[in-house]
Write a protein that binds this DNA or RNA. Structure first.
Lengths: 199, 199
DNA sequence: TCCATTCACATACAACCTGTATCTGAGTCT
DNA sequence: AGACTCAGATACAGGTTGTATGTGAATGGA
């Protein structure tokens, strides 16, 4: 890797870093490209050289966030083998990670609009949805929940989890909201069990 | 109501009608105010006289859609008294009404971004969320599902239902997707029952 | 080592879009 | 009939995105 390539990579990463912060703080529409490049000590020329445009930059930020999110959740769940507890643990891990309002704004509110729902879904299928699908499939294989078409069910669970995250992220007292929402999520997901624990 | 007021009301309705169509077809960001007023045979002056701006016009469109949606679902459910069947019937009624991709785009994709999640949630609380809350409360009162905090649960169900609607609305073959998604929704919501039917 | 080439990034420009301030003329009230 | 109100038109200013073009440093071969 030559000197020039190194510097180029550096600026690309810097653009991503700054854009991520601004998009997270104020939302896609409220942030102009000029502000992004100014904070990075560059000009819009650099942005349009490294990305196809503002939307493409946002897409890169979004994918980065999704990757980190999934990695974080997955690493937290690495020790759990029993599919029975994996469901609950997965729910809690997700809620732990999605509480950040900045993250929620980018990946859950802005992304579907900016990228279009189809592309958003496609990206999610490569990341978050895969995690949920795996957990549900595992639970089915273990006979914990009834066997059924995983795809649509995974989508619904993702939808419910996303709403839970937004509820917590936008609450005045997120910790309190978390305590309020978590049982509901557990009840909804837990209801899928063939042999539900007593409630 | 005087002649002038009548004409004013007429233009206001016309603006709403045109905006609704354009927003539904191409999304909020892709439609300029100029195009809206041009199709209505007006100028932007009229728009800014009747609404506070583009966002406010969108808000009016969104609220109109929500009202119609809830009314449609509620009327379809008017005959159902048994809370046991009301849950399933409600799910089906919702999926029937939300299949329109144009409607889904405005109320489910664009609205949270354009209006901000908090305001979107607030509006939904006056419409769709109320319906779900009522259905769940009824089911709890009848002992069909376990008594618990209704608020968060209603949000989760709305989230799952919204995702289901988008899944259907954006599918290549909506009817086929509908057949695929409906059982999943019924399973998820049905899992809340204290005495689940055999699955 | 020198020169042509490449490429990361800057500059300049054009089109567009929103919001606001001001104007006009038809309708309304006394 | 005359003053007033107000729906809607016109004109303008600021800001934003994307594109086309320019530039200078790094690269690589002769």
């Amino acid at each position: 890797m030559s000197t020039r390539d190194e510097r180029a990579d550096e600026t690309r990463r810097e653009l991503l870093r700054v854009a991520r912060e601004l998009f997270a703080d104020r939302g896609y529409a409220a942030v102009g490209t000029e502000e992004i490049v100014a904070r990075a000590g560059l000009t819009r020329g650099a942005l349009y050289h490294h990305f196809q445009g503002k939307r493409d930059l946002f897409r890169a930020v979004h994918e980065q966030l999704e990757e980190e999110l999934v990695a974080e959740i997955a690493s937290g769940l690495a020790g759990v083998a029993d599919p029975e507890v994996l469901l609950d643990a997965g729910v809690r891990a997700f809620l732990d990670s999605c509480t950040d309002p900045r993250l929620a704004r980018v990946t859950l509110v802005d992304a579907p609009t900016v990228l279009g729902w189809s592309q958003w879904r496609e990206i999610d299928e490569r990341h978050g949805l895969g995690l949920v699908t795996a957990a549900l499939s595992g639970a089915m294989d273990a006979g914990v929940i009834a066997r059924q078409d995983v795809r649509p069910l995974a989508h619904l669970v993702i939808g419910a989890l996303g709403e839970a995250a937004l509820l917590i992220a936008n609450a005045e007292d997120p910790a309190a909201m978390r305590r309020q929402v978590e049982p509901a999520v557990l009840a909804l997901v837990g209801g899928l069990r063939v042999h539900p624990p007593d409630r």
